[in-house]
């Protein structure tokens, strides 16, 4: 649905150039919720603005719904009619809502419809329908200043949906909201994604957002995508930083000559009593150092760090057993092990 190819954005600065995007390839499938995470300054904001060409990339292409936007004429601000038409088919919600204080809630939702040239009666019908969809039907006549942050973001979402977009871009939509409101807004985005088949590309610095609603995720660092894929794929990737961030497991071995392994359960293995089977079959003492279990889009995914007595060589068979059960097994590089290595 959204494909960027070798996207680069360089800002000319006084003495040197600042590279915000350094060859970003992103592929968002139709109907999925895709999260781009990274710290501030990683280039997330620039990336999402390049998708609807609010920022024109220095090089590379952006394709949304099969249309190459970078090929459409016009500069960012004096965009040609074709690009403007394409933009009205891409909804966008903002961190600070960006609602017009001078218009009522309904007036704000009608704005994109006015731009599309839709007649007054049709506009107000559509606006009320959208407000109903986001649960704000009773606030149509209120002004943004009378609403709470969460309500404002709902208006922002209703407004973004006015042009019947196939794609919704969310620029840190929940970052200005409290945890409770964040959950309800994320739930709304998820509902819209499922009810309307809306493809959602969101950027965030909160891992919880990815955990809550994303099907796929990408991690950005210094203008590059360093990891990307579906959440399940990421979890299946040994040493994945995103997987570790999403499911942090910690814990240090209780003594020397122990084998610490990280297990990732997904799919069926998550519901099997694997650990007790392991203990019974091989008569080993398993101690659990850390664990996290989550349900991601209806599927259980968990990570666990366990400790087996004896060095790795003694535990090859039990580890093989775990692998056979469809569990992803990684021998953990604990802090102690790392220290040993540096000493060597």
């Amino acid at each position: 649905m959204i494909t960027t190819t070798d996207l680069r954005k360089v800002y000319p600065s006084r003495d040197r150039e600042i590279t915000a995007l350094d060859g970003v390839d992103l592929h968002v499938r139709e109907g999925e919720v895709y999260g781009v995470v990274g710290q501030s300054g990683a280039g997330k904001s620039t990336l999402i603005r390049c998708v609807n060409l609010l920022e024109r990339p220095t090089s590379g292409t952006v394709e949304v719904a099969g249309q190459d936007l970078t090929a459409l004429g016009g500069r960012t601000d004096r965009a040609g009619a074709a690009l403007r038409a394409a933009r009205s088919g891409i909804g966008m919600v903002f961190q600070h809502f960006n609602l017009l204080a001078s218009r009522t809630v309904q007036g704000n939702v009608e704005l994109p419809l006015e731009i599309l040239g839709i007649s007054g009666k049709e506009r107000s019908r559509k606006a009320l329908e959208l407000l109903d969809l986001v649960g704000l039907a009773d606030k149509a006549r209120a002004y943004p200043a009378q609403l709470s942050g969460g309500q404002k973001q709902r208006v922002g979402i209703a407004r973004a949906l006015a042009g019947d977009p196939k794609v919704l871009l969310s620029d840190e939509a929940t970052s200005a909201l409290d945890p409770e409101t964040t959950r309800s807004i994320l739930q709304l985005l998820r509902d819209l994604n499922q009810q309307l088949g809306l493809t959602v590309l969101l950027i965030t610095h909160e891992m919880d957002v990815v955990k809550a609603i994303c099907d796929s995720a990408a991690l950005m660092k210094n203008g590059r995508v360093v990891e990307s894929g579906t959440v399940a794929e990421l979890l299946a990737t040994p040493g994945s930083e995103l997987a570790h961030e999403l499911f942090p497991v910690g814990g240090e071995p209780s003594g020397p000559d122990r084998t610490v392994i990280d297990l990732t359960f997904h799919g069926e293995s998550a519901t099997e009593p694997v650990i007790s089977q392991l203990a019974r079959t091989y008569n080993v003492d398993v101690s659990i150092l850390g664990a996290a279990m989550e349900t991601i889009s209806g599927r259980q995914i968990g990570r666990m760090r366990i400790e087996l007595p004896g060095p790795f060589e003694d535990n090859v068979v039990p580890i093989g057993f775990l692998r056979e059960q469809g569990i992803q097994v990684e021998v953990a590089r604990t802090a102690a092990a790392r220290v040993k290595e540096t000493v060597k």
């Binding site: 609807n52 394409a86 933009r87 960006n98 017009l100 731009i115």
Partner: peptide, 26 residues
């Protein structure tokens, strides 16, 4: 707020729309 200008652009508005619908009323 420049964010409003950005919002109008994201909706597919041109410069005239930005002036008439956002800058002047706000």
């Amino acid at each position: 707020d420049p964010g409003l200008v950005e919002a109008v652009h994201a909706m597919g508005g041109n410069t005239r729309t930005v002036v008439v619908k956002a800058l002047l009323p706000e």
